[in-house]
Design a protein around this nucleic acid. Structure first.
Length: 456
RNA sequence: GCCGAUUUAGCUUAGCUGGUGGAGCGUGGGACUGUUAAUCCCAAGGUCGUGGGUUCGAGCCCCACAAUCGGCGCCA
């Protein structure tokens, strides 16, 4: 007798069964019904768990009338425990099947409210008449159930590997994980894109970035990183925007713009490498070209100055003037010819906020960079060298007409032994969306938050 | 914030110049011993997003509102 009750830990996974680990053995499978079909004497059940799915065969003469009838009426997403012998079969999807000797229903499904998501729900015709995976209102409303469909599960696995790769990369390069508050008092930049939160009679905001608090700890930890949510109250209606997104940020003392870029390239390449190493099946399921992902993992990311980008755009007849920030329509034209991500550096000072360090070699530019992903996915990293001396930061703040008072703590960091430093922010959801070839960023986050949706 | 579009059964959708709304999936019942999103037969299931207007008559025409989707600006 176990004093604290029995255990029901699962040890047998469908993915391993499909790899041939249990051939000719009698095993117990725990999972959910994915599909059901067959005749009066023979039923085919597709059972799924988090690792895959397998065809289970129920025969009347083996199961007896009662259990066979139970099997026959079983509804999609019923949770069950199946016992049977594994065999190889060319007719079975995946090459293996389970001949059921007994079945126990764990959690039934109400036939008056059957599982509301069918295959057809997930396919949407786009303007070219092609079937794609859009988020229909229905699947978004039933997001809590949509998550268990094959495509959603696949995306979440890729996401998990990406998060793991980011942690591994930074920890492997002597970065310390460091947390900043999510409630903040003031704006990082602008102010119109902050979510306001009532805070015991005061006004607080949800953070847009970890950066300012990271800079405060930079003289203490020197190399630090985080993966945390950031919030932007932008009413952006695009396939690249969320109001709550996962932001991988790093800050590094004793570093130039170039040094920061090297890590930006390093972390993105290591994410691509991790997906290839850990998630080949998932990438294949998504019909992703593995050679393409390998190219992202194995090649250096070229760097291009803003001026050069403007010349290229003007050469293509795009109406753009020096000094303009490059919006998405221009990014898209620029990245059409890229087969790996490219860095864009040295933006005009007028296009960027005060914390970007002015280039000492030409004060019209700042030492910053954006990393643009190919295939039309756009900006995935924004970063650069910070304005690090007290004198320069005060000059930049005054130049922009920004009040000094809200940034006093930011200025203080520079008053006591400022050092050259910098960092970047990486949109994790954007990177996963790009590498997965997702049709929309919300495909890669379990419960997407956009300007029009906070539920479920 | 700006521009465009959509809304018909639980879901996906058809609907002719305005004349009593069809199908597939799913659900329920039935047939079938190797199916592959199985197939075949039957049934139930709709105040056509909401409100107003035009008309003898509105799913269809007009107005307003709402929800949702796509694109742009902004950014990760």
């Amino acid at each position: 007798m176990e004093p604290f009750g029995e255990s029901m830990v699962k040890t047998i996974w469908i993915g391993d069964v499909q790899k041939g680990k249990y051939n000719d053995q009698e095993i117990e499978l725990k999972g959910w019904i994915k599909r059901e079909r067959g005749s009066n004497k023979l039923r085919f059940i597709v059972l799924r768990d988090s690792t895959g799915s397998i065809q289970c065969v129920g025969k009347l003469d083996l199961l007896g009338e009662d259990m066979f009838q139970q099997l026959k009426g079983i509804l999609i997403e019923t949770s069950v425990i199946m016992t049977g012998v594994v065999s190889t079969s060319e007719k079975a999807p995946g090459g293996h099947e389970l001949l059921i000797s007994s079945m126990e229903i764990v959690g039934a499904v109400n036939s008056e409210r059957p599982f509301p998501i069918t295959e057809a729900d997930m396919l949407v015709e786009d303007e070219d008449g092609e079937l794609t995976y859009g988020g229909t209102e229905h699947t978004l409303n039933h997001r809590h159930l949509y998550l268990r469909t094959a495509r959603a599960t696949t995306m979440l696995k890729l996401r998990s590997s990406a998060f793991g790769a980011i942690h591994s990369y930074f920890r492997g390069h002597d970065f310390l994980e460091y947390q900043a508050p999510n409630f903040v008092a003031g704006a990082v930049e602008g102010g119109s894109t902050l979510f306001e939160v009532p805070y015991f009679g005061k006004q607080a905001y949800l953070t847009q970035s970890w950066q300012l608090y990271a800079e405060a700890a930079m003289p203490a930890l020197e190399r630090l990183y985080t993966i945390a949510p950031s919030f932007r109250a932008e009413k952006s209606r695009t396939r690249r925007h969320l109001t709550e997104f996962w932001h991988a940020e790093m800050e590094m003392a004793w570093a130039t713009n170039n040094d920061i870029m090297a890590h930006g390239e390093g972390v993105v390449r290591s994410i691509a490498r991790a997906l290839l190493d850990e998630r080949e099946d998932e990438l294949t399921y998504l019909e992703r070209d593995l050679n393409l992902i390998a190219r992202y993992a194995d090649n250096p990311y070229p760097r291009m100055r803003y001026d050069e980008a403007i010349e290229i755009l003007q050469g293509k007849g795009v109406a753009v003037e020096w000094g303009q920030d490059l919006d998405y329509s221009k990014e898209k034209v620029l990245t059409q010819d890229f087969d790996v991500p490219h860095f864009l550096t040295h933006y005009p000072k007028v296009a960027k906020p005060f914390y970007h360090r002015v280039d000492p070699e030409d004060e019209n530019y700042v030492l910053c960079h954006d990393l643009l992903a190919p295939e039309g996915y756009g900006e995935i990293i924004g970063g650069g060298e910070r304005t690090w001396s007290e004198e320069e930061i005060l000059q930049r703040i005054d130049e922009e007409g920004t009040p000094r008072e809200p940034y006093q703590f930011y200025i203080d960091v520079r008053s006591y032994g400022g050092v050259p430093h910098g960092g970047f922010g990486l949109g994790v959801d954007r990177v996963v969306s790009w590498l997965a070839g997702a049709t929309h960023i919300r495909e890669v986050i379990p419960f997407p938050r956009t300007s029009r949706r906070v539920t479920p």
